[in-house]
Every structure is written in C-alpha cells, then in structure tokens.
Design a protein around this nucleic acid. Sequence first.
DNA 1: ACCTCGTCCTGGTTGC
DNA 2: TGCAACCAGGACGAGG
Length: 256
Amino acid sequence: MLVDAEIDDSRLTRPFDPVEVAAELRGERVDSVDRRGKYLIVRFDSGRALLIHLRMTGSLRASALVGDPHRRALLTMDDGTHVAYKDVRRFGTWLLLEPGELDPYLAARLGEEPLLPTFTAKRLGERLAGRRAPLKAALLDQRTLAGLGNIYVDEALWYARLQPLREAGTLSPDEIRRLHRAIRKALELGVARQGSTLSDYRLPDGSSGSMQREFRAYGRSDRNGVGEPCDRCGTELSKTRVGGRSTWYCPRCQTL
DNA sequence: ACCTCGTCCTGGTTGC
DNA sequence: TGCAACCAGGACGAGG
C-alpha cells in the first residue's frame, strides 16, 4: 500500500494540482504494474490508474534519492520502501485516472503493440496504406504503432534498408515484411539491453542501459557532421532532419 | 482525415 | 575566460 506521496514539480501532474494528486494517491493499494507503448500503468485496487510517461530524462528508482536536486516525486510504501521519480528536464507526466478512464485514454492515442503476436506484416501494411507522410514520421506517430521513438525508428529503418524520407504508403509487400521484422528486431534488442543511457536514463537500481552500444544508425556522426561507416556497406552515414528530428541513415543501402 | 510545425524544459556543448 | 546561442526530443494543439 502507498502510505505517502510527495510531488514537488508543478509540471508533473499538469493541469492538476500536484498537492491534490499526491493526497489522492495516499492509501491506494497497487494491484499491478504494466506498460502500453511508452506509458507505464500502475493499477490500483480502487480501479483508478496512475499513468506515468518518462519522456526523455525521467526514471523511476527503487530508492529515496535523498538530496537529489532532480527528484520530482517520492512514494513511500507500507513496508517502508521508496519509489522515487527523477527527471532532469521535467518533460515527464503523471496522470491519475478514475475507473473506466484508462482504456479510452490509451485507445485514442496508441496503435497496436509491435511485440505482440497479433502484430503482423499484414497489419503493418494496413496501418501505412495510403499515407503520404515520410515513413519515419508515420512510424513516430504513436497511433500507427505504439512505442517507437526517434532512436528505434532510425534503427529499424537501418535494419529494413529503407530511407527515412520514403513515402509511407508506397512500400512493396517485401519492403513491408522487412520493416516488420526490423521493428521487432530493434525493439527486442533495446529491451534485451535494457534501454539506451545517453545521459540521464537509468534502470530502477541506478545502473545504465547498454543499447547505445548497439546503435547501427542513431547518433553515429561526429560534431562536424561526419558520419561513421555503415556496418553493412562501409559508406559514411548521413545525418539529416525528418519530422523535426535528427535522423541518421546509410545513403547507399537505405533506398528510397 | 491527414500532415507539419511550434512549444515545453534543462544541462551540456559550441562559437564568438 | 565568459556568456549567449544552440541542441537533444515525446506529445499535443494550432493551423494548413
């Protein structure tokens, strides 16, 4: 059971008052902890749910993080253990939902889970059909698929050998199959490596993920914009901007 | 209905 | 050396 909740960030629970949200959390008993897309879901016995989004620099810690200037919230359980929320850039959000609100909230924002068996190449093709946006922009849209961000889109497109600016609705059946496998591969590797620690992301015990050591495309250029060689063909990787986001790809083996 | 772009936020790095 | 400008990006709302 949650015996105390303290929220010190005026942004975290916006537009709701953090003091009031903290008061609502006291006494709630945790039923389950789950994930949907990039959202963490804490379900309570009462039927309410706390929806946590870490954005870029948020992390949940199994510690009180005493003295940490970037601690934004602290939960205390009835066995005396703590869960702290740390977020340097304050982009993360906590939203307390009443019974019945969770499913419609997520359904309006998220497409299907790419790691579930129900996500097939055929389903991916249906989601991209008719879309004229750049492939990367379509994949960053959480309603297309849930959970791909800038890193994993670049990685998936590299594995699939597809150019980020490719028009999303023009993929051939073979290209759809390649992309389907590539998305799974990129995400599974990220999970196995426990995420990418580029600066602030940490596991609950404070340790770092190691996915950043597996990058094939994302971030692989120096500060002068000179790309590292592609692991497949040796060509210098290119850096550009797509959908307002930094984008790395191989100009030779990722084709339009 | 689809798509693009600006906004939020902080710390590290770059450039003058 | 100091300081301003820039960069990183997930979700959302405005506008085309």
